[in-house]
Simulated scan of single mutants.
Amino acid sequence: MALEDSLTSLSRYVEFSYDNFNSYSIEMVRILLSAGSEVDVVLKDICKILEPSRKVKNISDYRDLISSKSLCFDGRLVHIPRFGLDFEPWSDWSSKEPLFWWRSYNKVKHQRSSSYSEGNLKNVLYAMAALFSANVVLCKLNGISKVCPPPSMFRSLDGAARVMGSIEGEQCLFVH
């Protein structure tokens, strides 16, 4: 939620549109590094649930284990209604090539001086969409069916989760 708040604040200064996807800044670098790190943590947690005794150490290991359990991340669509943007952050995860936003996250993390511009809006939004969808999967695996407060910016378009009103009219994220 804190990262989503940072993203919401960023949207006051940079319009989230395809035209601005190459924009970069120190704040975008910070969000990309934080989101990438959180994706790593969430994927490790998913792997621990799926196979507690198996050691996983990188995104390739996560992909191999998650795919072997028929838990498909490919095709998970994430929508930002406020800006009319759709993302499929795991679209090429089944290939042996790293995801473009993950590769950029690692470039910024390990080679910041030469890869600073990789901390751009496109990579930030894809990393945040990936974090959102990975969290939806983690909640489902943990038996959590209702998360309040819900994410304010992201919505799932693939049926893995949907936003509904609660009894009191509060918006909550229900995971099926």
Rank of each mutant, 00 (worst) to 15 (best):
Met1Phe: 14
Ile66Cys: 01
Gly169Gln: 09
Asn120Arg: 01
Ser114Asn: 13
Arg30Gln: 15
Ser23Asp: 10
Val42Lys: 03
Arg103Lys: 13
Phe174Met: 11
Ile59Met: 03
Tyr18Thr: 08
Asn58Leu: 08
Arg112Ile: 05
Leu71Val: 03
Cys139Gly: 02
Phe100Thr: 03
Ala35Gly: 00
Trp93Ile: 09
Asn58Val: 10
His176Asn: 15
Pro52Lys: 12
Leu173Tyr: 10
Cys139Phe: 12
Ala161Gly: 13
Asp45Cys: 12
Trp90Glu: 07
Glu4Leu: 05
Asp64Ala: 05
Gln171Cys: 10
Val14Pro: 05
Val108Pro: 02
Leu65Cys: 00
Asp74Ile: 06
Lys107Leu: 09
Val39Leu: 11
Lys96Arg: 11
Gly159Ser: 08
Ile66Lys: 04
Tyr62Cys: 00
Pro81Ser: 14
Val39Asn: 12
Lys55Cys: 04
Pro98Tyr: 04
Pro52Ala: 09
Ile66Asp: 01
Ser145Asp: 14
Leu121Met: 02
Asn142Lys: 14
Tyr62Glu: 01
Cys72Val: 00
Ser23Tyr: 11
His110Thr: 04
Lys96Trp: 10
Val39Glu: 07
Glu27Ser: 14
Asp61Ser: 01
Ser104Arg: 05
Glu168Phe: 08
Arg155Ser: 07
Glu38Pro: 02
Trp102Thr: 00
Arg112Phe: 09
Ser133Thr: 12
Tyr105Phe: 14
Ile26Cys: 07
Glu15Trp: 15
Trp90Ala: 09
Ile80Phe: 08
Pro52Phe: 14
Gly36Gln: 02
Leu7Ser: 05
Leu3Gln: 09
Val39His: 03
Ser117Tyr: 08
Glu170Ile: 13
Cys172Asn: 11
His176Lys: 13
Pro98Lys: 08
Val147Gly: 04
Ile144His: 02
Ser133Gln: 10
Asp74Ser: 04
Ser115Val: 06
Asp64Arg: 05
Ser94Val: 10
Gly84His: 15
Lys146Trp: 11
Asp45Glu: 15
Val14Met: 09
Tyr62Met: 00
Ser68Met: 06
Ala35Ser: 08
Thr8Val: 15
Ser94Asp: 14
Ser6Asp: 14
Leu125Thr: 06
Asn20Ile: 04
Asn58Lys: 10
Asp19Gln: 06
His79Cys: 03
Leu65Ser: 02
Val78Thr: 07
Leu77Glu: 06
Tyr18Glu: 12
Phe83Ser: 08
Ser156His: 03
Ser9Cys: 11
Phe100Trp: 12
Ser25Trp: 14
Asn106Glu: 08
Phe100Gly: 03
Leu3Pro: 02
Lys44Arg: 15
Leu43Arg: 03
Tyr62Arg: 01
Asp92Asn: 12
Glu170Gly: 07
Glu97Ile: 07
Gly84Lys: 14
Phe174Ile: 07
Gly169Pro: 06
Phe16Thr: 05
Arg155Gln: 09
Ile49Leu: 14
Gly84Asp: 15
Val136Gly: 01
Leu157Glu: 09
